[in-house]
Nucleic acid binder design. Structure first.
Lengths: 227, 227
DNA sequence: CGACATATTGATATCCATCAAACCGGGTGG
DNA sequence: CCACCCGGTTTGATGGATATCAATATGTCG
């Protein structure tokens, strides 16, 4: 049920590169790189959205904080993903590096200028936003109508699809991050994972609890029920 | 916390009209009207998205059905609102008329053609999609982190803002619709409304339970906590 | 008026949050 | 190298919010 955001996102910076605005006249301003240490903030809510980012390495979470301390994670961004694209010119979420993370960034201003006369860029921007929308819609369904076990299964299913590189799912985010993403508590997430373990759906690798192997993809997918 | 989707949406068809594609050469094909009786389906999931709609009168719900019968309502669309705009060419939700409803519709194809060379249309499309995204994000927050009373308060607050016409909020949708929008059951919604009533936050008008007057806007807003 | 849908209210069950404690791995400093 | 601490995780016990089940009330439409 989760959208592969990655696919189309890659194409933005690619297409921008093709358009010659990337490493053209001024590579430092127009398309530069930056790294963030674990836990560091990339931007905060209501900050002017000066840049659009692409994850090159690591992982990023975008989240909101409520007045009473509750936290909502809207999405996780993995290598290849684009984030920080806003329409109103102001960030509606806060972005933080979950682990050591490297990003590429483009001045928003450049996009606007180039887009003005180019349908390809417009189409790409719209496509990116639509993918975000689709992810949000799927996530709404999860939050509205699914049990704790179904949510965790859906999360693992999503990660399994997005981290297809290896057999082992190496989760960069903590149980707390997962809980805040799924609208659950740490304890409930832990219990759900444990149950999936004892049910033989997954297994742990190594001594840390963040390296997971899916043993029974079919059962996992059956828990992540579709619309 | 809810976005006024209406504002920017009006401008799409206005700007399209200004562009001369509305009642220009072929008014019947390019910009026509249609009415749906209460409960009638406007389009279903995975149907090709041939048209974009604007509500003129009445109310529309867009929803998804899960395999086990659970239903999620993604949004309510009131007069002025645009709905049915998809990027992938296929509807991801089902749209149904809640009450007797009149819509205007535009062929998606026309948008594409005109947009191709016109930044204004692109900007409008992007803006519409961004508004939808923002609504979805706010709704995610609600579903992830709010209690039943907070959700119902947020819903009434949203409706109060969108139906500013009169003092009386005349809800077109049933308790079931509200429940499926908020991720609650009918009973819980009913109990929450009753509590707001006994607490003196709102009052009912007439003999139906769908005509509501907000007595204490401040307290209602205080329940609809912000990020 | 009667039948049916919609809404409210009540009683109970269930899932998940909360509170609490133990566990584990990694880092630090003696 | 080991003792200690500390953040993250797991596991257990309990309570509470909401779902579920059931009954009543109210409104609508024929």
């Amino acid at each position: 049920m989760f959208v592969s955001i990655t696919t189309d996102h890659r194409s933005l910076i690619n297409s921008l590169s093709e358009l010659g605005i990337s490493s053209g006249s001024n590579p430092i301003v127009s398309l530069s790189e930056f790294t963030y240490k674990k836990g560091k903030t990339i931007y905060i809510e209501s900050e002017p959205a000066e840049y659009v980012y692409q994850v090159r390495k690591g992982a990023v979470r975008t989240c909101k904080l409520l007045s009473d301390g509750r936290r909502q994670i809207g999405a996780f961004h993995l290598p290849g993903d684009i984030f920080g694209l806003e329409n109103g010119g102001v960030h509606r979420f806060r972005a933080e590096a979950i682990i050591q993370t490297a990003v590429r960034l483009i001045r928003r201003q450049h996009l606007e200028t180039v887009a003005e006369n180019d349908a390809v860029v417009w189409r790409t921007l719209l496509s990116l936003t639509t993918n975000n929308l689709q992810h949000a819609e799927d996530h709404m369904l999860l939050l509205e109508r699914k049990t704790a076990l179904e949510r965790v299964a859906a999360f693992l299913h999503e990660m399994d699809e997005r981290l297809t590189a290896a057999d082992v799912i190496s989760l960069p985010m903590s149980r707390r991050d997962i809980a805040d993403y799924l609208g659950l508590t740490v304890e409930t997430v832990s219990r759900a994972v444990s149950q999936l373990h004892t049910d033989g759906v997954l297994d742990f690798i190594g001594n840390t609890q963040r390296e997971i192997v899916i043993l029974d993809r079919q059962r996992l997918a059956s828990l992540d029920l579709q619309s």
